[in-house]
Amino acid sequence: MTLSAQMAVQRGSLALDVAVEVADGEVLAVLGPNGAGKSTLLRVLAGLLPADAGRVAVDGTTWDDDGVHLPPHRRPLGMVFQDALLFPHLSVAENVAFGLRTRGHGRTAARAAADGWLARVGLDGLGGRRPAELSGGQAQRAALARALVGDPALLLLDEPLSALDARTRLTVRAELRRHLAEFAGSTVLVTHDPVDAMALADRVVVVEEGRVVQTGTPTDVGRRPRTDYVARLVGVSLLPGVGEGRTVQLDDGGEVAVAEEVTGPVFAAVRPESVALFLARPVGSPRNVWPLRLAGAVPHGTTVRCELAGAVPLVADVTATAFAELGLAPGSEVWAAVKASEVAVYAR
């Protein structure tokens, strides 16, 4: 483990109490809603904010502990902020060379290294420009080069893509993925976008109200969410209940048939594409059929995402054509069917 951190911070109404470990070359995504304490976590790791209690160690060197606080400028780290925050009074190349200059490298060497990194992030020849002359995507690439040029032990990314427009985000995300794969140190990525976490991270930590509520691989977190927040983020209907053989008795009433034998407190999770909607009760194979009511519907890509209320609250994705054929309106009665084999079930 190269980064090992555990911290307790009280800031206003936020009580952050988390522990994270990140190995060499590993990318850890910290996923959580606004105000969950994600940025506070990064600021403590960077040394910009002293923790009330805790310990931060990187490569066996203690950065924070009782009575120990390595100031931020002495920590070998790189940080990328949401708004790039390139120094407006310096050229792009001077921005990238900044960290090398402050750490004692000569002007020529720093400039050469900066130019090398600008080429690596696809900004060849733009080093002489002012930050104001760059697009949002270019600025964020330059900010990444500036953070990585000093070959840091720890890379901190604070919502690095959220200020970009949708198309730019896609390209920069792909590039970032490539750079992270080449980066030898540990990376902590803070985001509230599950797509970032899924695409970039090796492991995900979900933080809500200052606590870690779930840890796992991106796939695992996406398939088996443990809180409503994660379930909503990844678009899964999360149904807590108690397993009794091949059925789950839901805590809120209702009953879900599953494909395997389960006992004790479990979550049943249903993906929106697994839900089929009918105007009349369908006949035939599906073992899960519920009469529900359409609470809301929004376009979602090429499908319509339907919010269904009733004994078993579900989210269903139906094609726009199907939605039109069903003639659904908010308040409509509708039958929802889900195959037992399509229900993921896992212990609470």
Binding site: M79, F81, R103
Partner: peptide, 12 residues
């Protein structure tokens, strides 16, 4: 925040 950035870039 620019001062925070500078600190993460090794500037006292």
């Amino acid at each position: 925040r620019f001062e925070d950035v500078a600190a993460t870039l090794g500037a006292d």
